[in-house]
Design a protein around this nucleic acid. Structure first.
Lengths: 185, 185
DNA sequence: AGAATCATGTAAGTCGTTACATGATTTG
DNA sequence: CAAATCATGTAACGACTTACATGATTCT
Protein backbone atom coordinates (compact mmCIF):
# COMPACT_ATOMS: atom_id res chain seq x y z
CA UNK A 1 0.00 0.00 0.00
CA UNK A 2 2.90 2.38 -0.60
CA UNK A 3 1.78 4.14 -3.75
CA UNK A 4 -0.69 5.84 -1.48
CA UNK A 5 2.08 7.05 0.79
CA UNK A 6 4.33 8.08 -2.06
CA UNK A 7 1.53 10.27 -3.39
CA UNK A 8 0.92 11.76 0.05
CA UNK A 9 4.62 12.44 0.46
CA UNK A 10 4.97 14.15 -2.90
CA UNK A 11 1.97 16.35 -2.13
CA UNK A 12 3.50 17.18 1.26
CA UNK A 13 6.76 18.16 -0.46
CA UNK A 14 5.07 20.21 -3.15
CA UNK A 15 2.25 21.81 -1.21
CA UNK A 16 -0.13 21.16 -4.07
CA UNK A 17 -0.05 19.32 -7.36
CA UNK A 18 -2.28 17.68 -9.93
CA UNK A 19 -2.30 14.00 -10.86
CA UNK A 20 -0.44 14.96 -14.00
CA UNK A 21 2.23 16.79 -11.99
CA UNK A 22 2.67 13.84 -9.66
CA UNK A 23 2.96 11.48 -12.59
CA UNK A 24 5.83 13.57 -13.90
CA UNK A 25 7.66 13.29 -10.59
CA UNK A 26 7.08 9.54 -10.44
CA UNK A 27 8.52 9.05 -13.91
CA UNK A 28 11.43 11.37 -13.45
CA UNK A 29 12.55 11.04 -9.82
CA UNK A 30 10.91 7.97 -8.35
CA UNK A 31 11.15 5.57 -11.26
CA UNK A 32 13.93 3.44 -9.75
CA UNK A 33 12.36 3.34 -6.33
CA UNK A 34 8.60 3.22 -6.76
CA UNK A 35 7.27 3.31 -10.32
CA UNK A 36 3.62 4.18 -10.90
CA UNK A 37 1.40 4.21 -13.95
CA UNK A 38 -1.01 6.99 -14.86
CA UNK A 39 -3.97 4.68 -14.40
CA UNK A 40 -2.89 3.65 -10.94
CA UNK A 41 -2.16 7.16 -9.79
CA UNK A 42 -5.48 8.67 -10.84
CA UNK A 43 -7.32 5.77 -9.22
CA UNK A 44 -5.36 6.25 -6.01
CA UNK A 45 -6.02 10.00 -5.91
CA UNK A 46 -9.73 9.22 -6.12
CA UNK A 47 -9.45 6.81 -3.20
CA UNK A 48 -7.35 9.27 -1.19
CA UNK A 49 -10.00 11.92 -1.73
CA UNK A 50 -12.76 9.56 -0.57
CA UNK A 51 -10.70 8.74 2.51
CA UNK A 52 -10.22 12.49 3.10
CA UNK A 53 -6.45 12.19 3.21
CA UNK A 54 -6.18 14.66 0.33
CA UNK A 55 -8.49 17.38 -0.91
CA UNK A 56 -9.03 19.18 -4.24
CA UNK A 57 -7.85 22.73 -3.58
CA UNK A 58 -8.17 24.21 -7.06
CA UNK A 59 -9.58 23.40 -10.48
CA UNK A 60 -7.96 24.82 -13.59
CA UNK A 61 -8.23 24.61 -17.35
CA UNK A 62 -8.42 21.27 -19.18
CA UNK A 63 -10.12 19.68 -16.20
CA UNK A 64 -7.03 20.04 -14.06
CA UNK A 65 -7.49 19.40 -10.34
CA UNK A 66 -4.88 20.45 -7.82
CA UNK A 67 -4.67 18.33 -4.69
CA UNK A 68 -3.21 19.01 -1.25
CA UNK A 69 -2.81 16.78 1.82
CA UNK A 70 -5.27 17.22 4.68
CA UNK A 71 -4.34 17.09 8.37
CA UNK A 72 -5.40 13.42 8.47
CA UNK A 73 -3.31 12.79 5.38
CA UNK A 74 -0.20 14.31 6.92
CA UNK A 75 -0.68 12.21 10.04
CA UNK A 76 -1.15 9.04 8.03
CA UNK A 77 1.97 9.84 6.01
CA UNK A 78 4.19 10.43 9.02
CA UNK A 79 2.91 7.30 10.69
CA UNK A 80 3.86 5.31 7.63
CA UNK A 81 7.25 7.03 7.31
CA UNK A 82 8.46 6.57 10.86
CA UNK A 83 6.33 3.99 12.60
CA UNK A 84 5.63 1.29 10.04
CA UNK A 85 8.65 -0.96 9.46
CA UNK A 86 9.54 -1.06 5.76
CA UNK A 87 8.71 -4.45 4.29
CA UNK A 88 11.75 -6.22 2.94
CA UNK A 89 11.28 -7.40 -0.58
CA UNK A 90 11.34 -11.15 -0.38
CA UNK A 91 11.00 -12.15 -4.01
CA UNK A 92 14.26 -12.33 -5.92
CA UNK A 93 14.17 -13.53 -9.48
CA UNK A 94 17.92 -14.03 -9.69
CA UNK A 95 18.18 -16.12 -6.52
CA UNK A 96 15.25 -18.24 -7.62
CA UNK A 97 17.20 -19.13 -10.75
CA UNK A 98 20.32 -19.86 -8.72
CA UNK A 99 18.29 -22.39 -6.75
CA UNK A 100 17.68 -24.32 -9.97
CA UNK A 101 21.10 -23.96 -11.50
CA UNK A 102 21.92 -27.58 -10.72
CA UNK A 103 19.47 -28.61 -13.44
CA UNK A 104 21.71 -27.38 -16.24
CA UNK A 105 25.39 -28.05 -17.09
CA UNK A 106 27.93 -26.14 -15.01
CA UNK A 107 29.08 -24.16 -18.04
CA UNK A 108 25.60 -22.70 -18.50
CA UNK A 109 25.36 -21.89 -14.81
CA UNK A 110 28.67 -20.06 -15.03
CA UNK A 111 27.43 -18.07 -18.02
CA UNK A 112 24.28 -17.12 -16.17
CA UNK A 113 26.19 -15.85 -13.15
CA UNK A 114 28.77 -13.96 -15.19
CA UNK A 115 25.90 -12.41 -17.13
CA UNK A 116 24.47 -11.18 -13.82
CA UNK A 117 27.86 -9.75 -12.89
CA UNK A 118 28.00 -7.89 -16.20
CA UNK A 119 24.47 -6.53 -15.72
CA UNK A 120 25.43 -5.29 -12.26
CA UNK A 121 28.54 -3.59 -13.65
CA UNK A 122 26.43 -1.89 -16.29
CA UNK A 123 23.97 -0.69 -13.68
CA UNK A 124 26.88 0.67 -11.68
CA UNK A 125 28.14 2.64 -14.68
CA UNK A 126 24.72 4.14 -15.33
CA UNK A 127 24.44 5.25 -11.71
CA UNK A 128 27.93 6.76 -11.82
CA UNK A 129 26.73 8.89 -14.73
CA UNK A 130 23.70 10.02 -12.74
CA UNK A 131 26.02 10.85 -9.87
CA UNK A 132 28.13 12.99 -12.15
CA UNK A 133 25.14 15.07 -13.22
CA UNK A 134 24.03 15.44 -9.60
CA UNK A 135 27.13 16.88 -7.93
CA UNK A 136 26.26 20.49 -8.77
CA UNK A 137 22.72 20.20 -7.39
CA UNK A 138 21.82 21.79 -4.09
CA UNK A 139 19.02 21.61 -1.51
CA UNK A 140 17.59 18.94 0.79
CA UNK A 141 16.44 16.67 -2.05
CA UNK A 142 20.02 16.48 -3.26
CA UNK A 143 21.05 15.00 0.09
CA UNK A 144 18.36 12.33 0.08
CA UNK A 145 18.66 11.65 -3.62
CA UNK A 146 22.39 11.14 -3.10
CA UNK A 147 21.73 8.67 -0.28
CA UNK A 148 19.40 6.62 -2.47
CA UNK A 149 21.94 6.72 -5.29
CA UNK A 150 24.65 5.49 -2.96
CA UNK A 151 22.47 2.51 -2.13
CA UNK A 152 22.30 1.67 -5.83
CA UNK A 153 26.06 1.97 -6.19
CA UNK A 154 26.71 -0.29 -3.23
CA UNK A 155 24.04 -2.75 -4.30
CA UNK A 156 25.42 -3.12 -7.82
CA UNK A 157 28.95 -3.52 -6.49
CA UNK A 158 27.79 -6.22 -4.10
CA UNK A 159 25.84 -8.03 -6.82
CA UNK A 160 28.80 -7.95 -9.19
CA UNK A 161 31.25 -9.34 -6.62
CA UNK A 162 28.78 -11.94 -5.42
CA UNK A 163 28.01 -13.22 -8.91
CA UNK A 164 31.71 -13.61 -9.75
CA UNK A 165 32.33 -15.38 -6.45
CA UNK A 166 29.35 -17.67 -7.12
CA UNK A 167 30.69 -18.62 -10.57
CA UNK A 168 33.93 -19.68 -8.89
CA UNK A 169 31.99 -21.78 -6.40
CA UNK A 170 30.30 -23.65 -9.25
CA UNK A 171 33.67 -24.43 -10.77
CA UNK A 172 35.05 -25.56 -7.42
CA UNK A 173 32.05 -27.84 -6.83
CA UNK A 174 32.38 -29.36 -10.29
CA UNK A 175 36.07 -30.16 -9.97
CA UNK A 176 35.48 -31.84 -6.60
CA UNK A 177 32.52 -33.82 -8.06
CA UNK A 178 34.21 -34.99 -11.23
CA UNK A 179 37.97 -35.18 -10.65
CA UNK A 180 38.72 -36.15 -14.24
CA UNK A 181 42.16 -34.55 -14.02
CA UNK A 182 43.84 -34.61 -10.59
CA UNK A 183 45.67 -31.45 -9.51
CA UNK A 184 49.35 -31.34 -10.31
CA UNK A 185 51.56 -32.23 -7.32
CA UNK B 1 5.14 -14.92 -13.83
CA UNK B 2 7.79 -16.76 -11.86
CA UNK B 3 5.67 -18.87 -9.55
CA UNK B 4 4.92 -20.86 -12.66
CA UNK B 5 8.62 -21.41 -13.28
CA UNK B 6 9.39 -22.15 -9.66
CA UNK B 7 6.76 -24.89 -9.74
CA UNK B 8 8.14 -26.29 -13.00
CA UNK B 9 11.65 -26.23 -11.56
CA UNK B 10 10.68 -28.04 -8.39
CA UNK B 11 8.89 -30.71 -10.39
CA UNK B 12 11.96 -31.05 -12.60
CA UNK B 13 14.14 -31.53 -9.50
CA UNK B 14 11.78 -33.99 -7.85
CA UNK B 15 10.59 -35.96 -10.84
CA UNK B 16 7.07 -35.93 -9.48
CA UNK B 17 5.23 -34.27 -6.62
CA UNK B 18 1.76 -33.22 -5.47
CA UNK B 19 0.65 -29.65 -4.83
CA UNK B 20 0.94 -30.42 -1.15
CA UNK B 21 4.52 -31.60 -1.57
CA UNK B 22 5.47 -28.49 -3.54
CA UNK B 23 3.87 -26.29 -0.93
CA UNK B 24 6.10 -27.88 1.68
CA UNK B 25 9.22 -27.08 -0.37
CA UNK B 26 8.09 -23.51 -0.94
CA UNK B 27 7.58 -22.95 2.77
CA UNK B 28 10.75 -24.64 3.85
CA UNK B 29 13.35 -23.93 1.18
CA UNK B 30 12.05 -21.13 -1.03
CA UNK B 31 10.41 -18.90 1.54
CA UNK B 32 13.13 -16.22 1.45
CA UNK B 33 13.38 -16.23 -2.29
CA UNK B 34 9.92 -16.85 -3.70
CA UNK B 35 7.09 -17.37 -1.20
CA UNK B 36 3.84 -18.93 -2.41
CA UNK B 37 0.50 -19.53 -0.78
CA UNK B 38 -1.46 -22.75 -0.99
CA UNK B 39 -4.20 -21.01 -2.90
CA UNK B 40 -1.88 -19.63 -5.49
CA UNK B 41 -0.02 -22.88 -5.99
CA UNK B 42 -3.09 -25.02 -6.58
CA UNK B 43 -4.45 -22.43 -8.99
CA UNK B 44 -1.14 -22.38 -10.87
CA UNK B 45 -0.97 -26.16 -11.11
CA UNK B 46 -4.41 -26.08 -12.71
CA UNK B 47 -3.24 -23.52 -15.26
CA UNK B 48 -0.03 -25.44 -15.93
CA UNK B 49 -2.07 -28.56 -16.59
CA UNK B 50 -4.33 -26.68 -19.01
CA UNK B 51 -1.26 -25.34 -20.79
CA UNK B 52 0.14 -28.91 -20.93
CA UNK B 53 3.38 -27.91 -19.24
CA UNK B 54 2.71 -30.44 -16.48
CA UNK B 55 0.63 -33.60 -16.36
CA UNK B 56 -1.04 -35.64 -13.62
CA UNK B 57 0.96 -38.87 -13.50
CA UNK B 58 -0.71 -40.56 -10.52
CA UNK B 59 -3.70 -40.22 -8.22
CA UNK B 60 -3.49 -41.45 -4.65
CA UNK B 61 -5.55 -41.50 -1.47
CA UNK B 62 -7.21 -38.36 -0.10
CA UNK B 63 -7.54 -36.96 -3.62
CA UNK B 64 -3.81 -36.63 -4.01
CA UNK B 65 -2.56 -35.88 -7.52
CA UNK B 66 1.07 -36.30 -8.44
CA UNK B 67 2.33 -34.02 -11.21
CA UNK B 68 5.35 -34.23 -13.50
CA UNK B 69 6.72 -31.81 -16.11
CA UNK B 70 6.05 -32.55 -19.77
CA UNK B 71 8.56 -32.04 -22.56
CA UNK B 72 7.03 -28.64 -23.30
CA UNK B 73 7.24 -27.78 -19.61
CA UNK B 74 10.92 -28.63 -19.43
CA UNK B 75 11.59 -26.50 -22.49
CA UNK B 76 9.64 -23.56 -21.09
CA UNK B 77 11.52 -23.89 -17.80
CA UNK B 78 14.96 -23.91 -19.36
CA UNK B 79 14.07 -21.00 -21.58
CA UNK B 80 13.05 -19.02 -18.51
CA UNK B 81 16.13 -20.09 -16.55
CA UNK B 82 18.79 -19.25 -19.11
CA UNK B 83 17.27 -17.01 -21.79
CA UNK B 84 14.96 -14.63 -19.98
CA UNK B 85 16.84 -11.89 -18.15
CA UNK B 86 15.85 -11.81 -14.47
CA UNK B 87 13.79 -8.72 -13.75
CA UNK B 88 15.41 -6.47 -11.19
CA UNK B 89 13.09 -5.63 -8.40
CA UNK B 90 12.50 -1.91 -8.73
CA UNK B 91 10.27 -1.17 -5.75
CA UNK B 92 12.15 -0.47 -2.54
CA UNK B 93 10.13 0.53 0.49
CA UNK B 94 13.19 1.74 2.42
CA UNK B 95 14.52 3.96 -0.36
CA UNK B 96 11.07 5.44 -0.88
CA UNK B 97 11.10 6.55 2.74
CA UNK B 98 14.61 7.96 2.41
CA UNK B 99 13.33 10.13 -0.43
CA UNK B 100 10.91 11.77 2.01
CA UNK B 101 13.19 11.99 5.01
CA UNK B 102 13.58 15.74 4.55
CA UNK B 103 9.99 16.16 5.71
CA UNK B 104 10.82 15.25 9.31
CA UNK B 105 13.46 16.57 11.76
CA UNK B 106 16.99 15.25 11.25
CA UNK B 107 16.91 13.39 14.54
CA UNK B 108 13.97 11.28 13.37
CA UNK B 109 15.67 10.63 10.06
CA UNK B 110 18.74 9.43 11.92
CA UNK B 111 16.63 7.12 14.04
CA UNK B 112 14.99 5.68 10.98
CA UNK B 113 18.31 4.94 9.30
CA UNK B 114 19.92 3.47 12.39
CA UNK B 115 16.82 1.31 12.81
CA UNK B 116 17.39 -0.01 9.29
CA UNK B 117 21.02 -0.72 10.16
CA UNK B 118 19.91 -2.69 13.22
CA UNK B 119 17.36 -4.66 11.19
CA UNK B 120 20.08 -5.53 8.68
CA UNK B 121 22.40 -6.66 11.46
CA UNK B 122 19.66 -8.88 12.87
CA UNK B 123 19.04 -10.39 9.45
CA UNK B 124 22.75 -11.08 9.14
CA UNK B 125 22.76 -12.91 12.48
CA UNK B 126 19.80 -15.06 11.49
CA UNK B 127 21.51 -16.02 8.25
CA UNK B 128 24.74 -16.87 10.07
CA UNK B 129 22.71 -19.32 12.16
CA UNK B 130 21.29 -20.92 9.03
CA UNK B 131 24.82 -21.15 7.65
CA UNK B 132 25.94 -22.97 10.77
CA UNK B 133 23.25 -25.62 10.37
CA UNK B 134 24.12 -26.03 6.70
CA UNK B 135 27.83 -26.80 6.78
CA UNK B 136 27.38 -30.54 7.25
CA UNK B 137 24.91 -30.85 4.34
CA UNK B 138 26.04 -32.39 1.08
CA UNK B 139 24.90 -32.62 -2.52
CA UNK B 140 24.25 -30.17 -5.34
CA UNK B 141 21.45 -28.33 -3.54
CA UNK B 142 23.88 -27.48 -0.75
CA UNK B 143 26.08 -25.67 -3.27
CA UNK B 144 23.25 -23.56 -4.67
CA UNK B 145 21.63 -23.00 -1.31
CA UNK B 146 24.98 -21.78 -0.02
CA UNK B 147 25.29 -19.34 -2.93
CA UNK B 148 21.86 -17.88 -2.22
CA UNK B 149 22.71 -17.63 1.48
CA UNK B 150 25.92 -15.80 0.65
CA UNK B 151 23.86 -13.25 -1.26
CA UNK B 152 21.80 -12.64 1.87
CA UNK B 153 24.92 -12.23 3.99
CA UNK B 154 26.45 -9.76 1.60
CA UNK B 155 23.18 -7.91 1.15
CA UNK B 156 22.61 -7.44 4.87
CA UNK B 157 26.20 -6.31 5.37
CA UNK B 158 25.83 -3.77 2.57
CA UNK B 159 22.51 -2.51 3.95
CA UNK B 160 23.94 -2.13 7.44
CA UNK B 161 27.00 -0.19 6.28
CA UNK B 162 24.95 1.96 3.92
CA UNK B 163 22.39 2.90 6.57
CA UNK B 164 25.08 3.94 9.04
CA UNK B 165 26.86 5.94 6.35
CA UNK B 166 23.54 7.61 5.41
CA UNK B 167 22.87 8.61 9.01
CA UNK B 168 26.25 10.35 9.06
CA UNK B 169 25.37 12.16 5.84
CA UNK B 170 22.22 13.53 7.44
CA UNK B 171 24.24 14.85 10.36
CA UNK B 172 26.80 16.38 8.02
CA UNK B 173 24.07 18.09 5.96
CA UNK B 174 22.44 19.46 9.09
CA UNK B 175 25.59 20.94 10.54
CA UNK B 176 26.37 22.68 7.24
CA UNK B 177 22.75 23.93 7.00
CA UNK B 178 22.34 25.20 10.52
CA UNK B 179 25.73 26.09 11.98
CA UNK B 180 24.34 26.96 15.41
CA UNK B 181 27.59 26.04 17.12
CA UNK B 182 30.73 26.57 15.06
CA UNK B 183 33.40 23.87 15.30
CA UNK B 184 36.04 24.42 17.94
CA UNK B 185 39.30 25.85 16.53
C1' DA C 1 -4.12 23.86 -39.29
C1' DG C 2 -1.71 20.12 -37.27
C1' DA C 3 1.23 18.39 -33.68
C1' DA C 4 2.56 18.28 -29.14
C1' DT C 5 1.40 18.62 -24.57
C1' DC C 6 -1.73 18.86 -20.77
C1' DA C 7 -5.20 16.44 -18.43
C1' DT C 8 -8.47 12.96 -16.74
C1' DG C 9 -10.82 8.84 -16.56
C1' DT C 10 -12.35 3.53 -17.25
C1' DA C 11 -12.02 -1.57 -18.45
C1' DA C 12 -10.00 -5.99 -18.67
C1' DG C 13 -6.76 -9.01 -17.01
C1' DT C 14 -2.80 -10.97 -14.01
C1' DC C 15 -0.69 -11.82 -9.68
C1' DG C 16 -0.93 -12.10 -4.97
C1' DT C 17 -3.19 -12.37 -0.18
C1' DT C 18 -6.60 -13.80 3.28
C1' DA C 19 -10.28 -16.36 4.34
C1' DC C 20 -13.71 -19.92 3.67
C1' DA C 21 -14.96 -24.77 2.85
C1' DT C 22 -14.48 -29.70 2.79
C1' DG C 23 -13.06 -34.24 3.49
C1' DA C 24 -9.74 -38.52 4.02
C1' DT C 25 -6.21 -40.81 6.62
C1' DT C 26 -3.00 -41.47 10.30
C1' DT C 27 -1.44 -41.19 15.03
C1' DG C 28 -1.73 -41.01 20.07
C1' DC D 1 -12.26 -41.29 19.33
C1' DA D 2 -9.99 -36.96 19.03
C1' DA D 3 -6.35 -34.42 17.12
C1' DA D 4 -2.99 -33.83 13.74
C1' DT D 5 -1.77 -34.15 9.18
C1' DC D 6 -2.64 -34.78 4.36
C1' DA D 7 -4.99 -32.97 0.56
C1' DT D 8 -7.65 -30.06 -2.62
C1' DG D 9 -10.37 -26.41 -4.09
C1' DT D 10 -13.01 -21.54 -4.36
C1' DA D 11 -14.29 -16.58 -3.33
C1' DA D 12 -13.35 -11.89 -2.44
C1' DC D 13 -10.34 -8.30 -2.52
C1' DG D 14 -6.16 -5.30 -3.35
C1' DA D 15 -2.15 -3.84 -6.26
C1' DC D 16 -0.43 -3.39 -10.67
C1' DT D 17 -0.24 -3.40 -15.94
C1' DT D 18 -1.83 -2.58 -20.56
C1' DA D 19 -4.93 -0.69 -23.35
C1' DC D 20 -8.80 2.16 -24.61
C1' DA D 21 -11.15 6.61 -24.73
C1' DT D 22 -11.71 11.51 -24.69
C1' DG D 23 -11.01 16.29 -24.84
C1' DA D 24 -8.73 21.13 -24.00
C1' DT D 25 -4.91 24.17 -24.76
C1' DT D 26 -0.57 25.66 -26.58
C1' DC D 27 3.06 25.87 -29.87
C1' DT D 28 5.03 25.94 -34.61
Amino acid sequence: MSLRHAALGLLALRGEASGYDLLGIFNESLDHVWPATQSQLYTELGKLTDAELVRVVAEGGRGRKAYAVTEAGRKEFEHWLLEEPPTTNRRNDTLLRVFFLGLVPTEQGREFLLGRAAAAAEMHDRLRDVEGSLTDEQGPLAVHGRIALEWGLRYSTMQNEWARWAAQQLDAAESSDVPSAPPAP
